[in-house]
């Protein structure tokens, strides 16, 4: 009887020892999750979406691996720990890349805002020189309304920029710049046409 009891005890002790060989790498999981959260705060989903998705996918796979190991009698978290370490590095890189890309977009919007305002100012000057005859003045009146719309769009882009929404500001200012450039070309062509006629005369 005593021996049977000892045998059972030995078996339980062995199971306990074997099944608790590996310990869940909770500290590494927390650190990686924190790095991913930091990347999210750095708006990685907006500025480097593909890289951010890759990090998230990698973390999901690791968590599945860890859970799978957790289901086993003999747990082995070594490979997951290594993967967590590389994902942590990647998440930190993604956060840095997102910040860099954000700065890049910010600089691009700043340039475009300045450029668009300069084109708008030039358009106002060109308007004064543009030919008014043969419906020219009516066309210029219509252009003035378009220019007001561009001005309003620049203001909206500036507001988005001030709020830190650089990507939406970029799309808005790109359209405004394109439109302002179109008017600029139209005005320059009209002026050149008249100058050409005058020279020919």
């Amino acid at each position: 009887m005593k021996n049977k009891f000892l045998l059972g005890l030995a078996a339980i002790a062995m199971v306990a020892v074997l099944s608790s060989c590996g310990k869940k790498p909770q500290a590494e999981i927390d650190a990686t999750n924190a790095a991913i959260a930091a990347a999210q705060t750095a708006e990685a989903a907006v500025y480097v979406p593909a890289e951010f998705t890759a990090v998230q996918d990698s973390m999901n796979a690791i968590m599945a691996d860890i859970t799978a190991q957790d289901s086993k009698l003999f747990k082995k978290f070594g490979p997951s720990k290594a993967k967590l370490a590389s994902t942590l590095t990647l998440a930190n890189k993604v956060a840095t890349d997102a910040a860099a890309k954000k700065e890049e977009v910010k600089a691009e919007v700043t340039t475009l805002l300045t450029d668009t305002k300069a084109v708008c100012d030039e358009n106002v000057t060109l308007m004064k020189k543009a030919p008014r005859g043969k419906e020219g003045a009516a066309v210029l009146e219509a252009m003035k309304t378009d220019m007001s719309a561009i001005d309003a769009s620049c203001t909206e882009a500036q507001d988005l920029f001030d709020k830190g929404n650089y990507m939406d500001a970029l799309n808005k200012i790109k359209a405004a710049k394109d439109k302002a450039d179109g008017i600029n070309t139209e005005l320059k062509d009209a002026i050149a046409k008249v100058s050409g006629k005058k020279r020919a005369a």
């Binding site: 799309n171 359209a175 405004a176 439109k179």
Partner: peptide, 14 residues
């Protein structure tokens, strides 16, 4: 009309 034209330009950019 002007706003519509500009919004269409934004749609083209997107």
């Amino acid at each position: 009309i002007s706003k519509g034209k500009l919004t269409l330009k934004e749609a083209e950019v997107l």
